[in-house]
Structures are given as structure tokens and as C-alpha cells.
Simulated assay, not measured.
Amino acid sequence: MSVLKWIFRIVILVLAVFLIGAFFLPKETSVARSIAIDAPAEEIFPHVANLKATEAWSPWLSRDPEVQLTYGDVAEGVGATMTWASDHPQVGSGNMEIVEATAPSHLKTALDFGDMGTAMAYFDLVAQGDATQVTWGFTSDNGNNPMLRWMGLMMDGWVGPDYQKGLENLKNLVEGA
């Protein structure tokens, strides 16, 4: 048998393993990070419920000083929107809309990254004595897309550190550090 036939068979086998293996991976990807902030939820919530206020602690916006931000007519809460555009690969382009807001404990946003897909992000704020446990997370439905399912395995490593940095920035901002 010729070398080309063996190479062709190996390529077909690798593709089959990739495609079939993807369907054994989770359909949903989720990432979450938490931090305790020494302030009541009522003092923290405005920093996440007003999309313009997120500029002060976002872990991504500082990576590209040229990022273009556009805000909708609603300033905060349900219906507030933000669109961003950047050539920086770690910022990219997309839009976000707040779809749920229960002050001062919960906020949910719909994210659209264009060709990169969609996701839902959330903030949960839970009182813990004089502090508040703030959890920032997201979930994404990868559906039957094998590439998204494989990428889902890496999302915690890609997004998790940014979420942690953002929460640390938020903590420093709220606590005045």
C-alpha cells in the first residue's frame, strides 16, 4: 500500500476521532470566579448594573486604549446595551445587553461575539456578614458544533483569569484601595 493511502487513512481516522469525540464532551461551557468584597451589595451592584461603570474595572478594556465603545439609550439595568470594537485579539468585537437585573443581588447579560458565538454572563452578590461574595460567571451553549465543544475545554483557562482580574479590580475600586 502506498504511503499516500496510509496518510489519507490516518487523516480520516483523526478527523473521525475529533468529530465523534466532540459529542462526548459537554454541550454547555461554564466559567465562574468569586471574590469577597468588604462592602454591602448595594454599594457594589451599581458598578456592574451600569455598563459605562464597568470601564473602571474591566479586565479587557485596558488592553486596548483605542477600543471603541458605544452605549444604548438605557443607562443601567434591563435593556442597557454596550457594543465594543477592537482590533486587539484579546478584546475583539461584540455587544452585551443586560437581560435580568434584581438589585442588589443578581444581574444577567446576553453576550454576542459575532462569529465567535453567544453566551450568557451573570453576577451574583451574596451577603456574608459585613462583606459580599461576588461571583462573575458565564455559560455558553456549544450545541452540536464539534469545534465549540473542544474549545469549551479550554475556556476556564482562557476566561477564568480575566474574570479573576476583573473581580480584583472591582474589589479595589469599591474598597477604595
Rank of each mutant, 00 (worst) to 15 (best):
M1G: 12
M1Y: 10
W6V: 05
R9N: 11
V14K: 02
V14H: 05
V14M: 15
L15W: 00
I20H: 12
F23N: 14
F23P: 15
F24E: 13
L25G: 07
P26V: 09
K27Y: 02
T29K: 03
V31T: 05
V31H: 00
V31Q: 00
A32W: 08
S34V: 04
I37M: 08
I37P: 03
A39G: 04
A39S: 10
F45A: 07
H47P: 10
H47V: 15
N50H: 12
T54R: 11
E55A: 10
R63I: 01
R63L: 11
D64M: 05
P65T: 02
V67N: 07
T70L: 11
Y71R: 14
Y71M: 11
D73T: 13
M82H: 11
W84R: 15
A85S: 14
D87E: 06
Q90E: 15
G92S: 07
N95V: 00
A101S: 14
P104F: 00
L107T: 01
F113R: 14
D115H: 09
D115N: 11
T118E: 11
Y122A: 13
L125F: 12
L125T: 02
V126M: 06
Q128I: 09
G129Y: 09
G129P: 05
D130C: 01
A131P: 05
T132S: 14
Q133M: 07
T135D: 08
G137P: 04
F138T: 06
T139P: 02
D141M: 07
N142P: 06
M147W: 01
R149F: 02
L153H: 14
G157C: 05
G157D: 04
V159M: 12
D162K: 14
Y163Q: 14
Q164A: 09
K165T: 02
E168A: 08
N169S: 13
N169I: 09
L170M: 08
L170G: 04
V174I: 07
G176W: 11
G176A: 12
G176H: 08
G176F: 10
A177I: 11
